[in-house]
Design a protein around this nucleic acid. Structure first.
Lengths: 142, 142
DNA sequence: CGCTAACAGTTGCTTTTGTAACTAACAATG
DNA sequence: CATTGTTAGTTACAAAAGCAACTGTTAGCG
């Protein structure tokens, strides 16, 4: 039986992911000069509150050097502040500054618009199925 | 209403795509020293026969510089050969060498194994829905 | 305690990607 | 046919990612 590239899940997933990302990317990039890892870190802090770099790495499965540099960039933009955890001085607790919260709020609106555009091509049932399947695949290797 | 990061499609899609890619990546990387764009180019030629770089760019929506470099790398590995199209001497027609075909055949087996592992976490119906939704999202911006 | 191992995070160096400018070939217009 | 514009593909330079080695801190164990 012939192999079909457009049915190969890693390929299909990647194509869909890139198409979806492009839409949102234009917003955080042009307006705030942020990189992909940067908005992710910002959103993690915005959605879940204070976290250490390590916790972000685990939740998002991003490598620690990427997070480290994203945090440094966000700190340079004054969106994120850090304090050393007094109970474990290796740990740096990250949180959004007021400016960071404002940017998060603004990008949240963009994200919702983007989500609306994407989900518009799917029925509510398709959306539910998609999310459920993606969630299963996401935790694949772990 | 609170924004939920794990329900945000660009994020969810990306996480799932990366998880799925990791599985296959280990194979083409360790065994053939190939990069992501390289296996894609190889598979395009393997699945569809002779193509120009431009055609691969369009089909896979990969930037032309990435394809250019992937083709150069595949040519250096003697997996791909090129001939100038006599009807349009700007055009370079690419095709797999015998060695390239062998590698393609081997990787096809790996791809099918990988696909099987991934689809194992989904029912046949879920798979069908997933593919259909991904296909819709894939052609989003175009 | 003192020693070793593990951990959080950073930095330096290499590889890969992105962007823009380039070459070479064709096409259209006057 | 000259000139201007367009296309296929490459290359040079800058930005970003990956990897390994490093610092500083905590934890375990003799």
């Amino acid at each position: 039986m012939a192999f079909s590239l457009p049915d190969f899940l890693p390929y299909l997933l990647n194509q869909a992911a890139e198409a979806a990302s492009r839409e949102f990317q234009s917003r955080y990039r042009s307006r705030y000069g942020m990189l992909r890892t940067e908005w992710r870190v910002l959103f993690h802090l915005g959605c879940y509150g204070e976290l250490s770099a390590k916790q972000i790495c685990e939740r998002a499965s991003i490598h620690k050097t990427k997070v480290s540099r994203a945090v440094a960039a966000l700190q340079a933009k004054r969106y994120v502040s850090r304090t050393t955890d007094p109970d474990d001085r290796r740990r740096e607790v990250l949180s959004l500054t007021r400016a960071g919260k404002r940017v998060f709020d603004a990008l949240q609106v963009d994200a919702e618009e983007c989500e609306a555009k994407l989900t518009a091509v799917l029925t509510p049932q398709e959306q539910a199925h998609l999310r459920s399947s993606l969630a299963k695949l996401m935790h694949f290797g772990s």
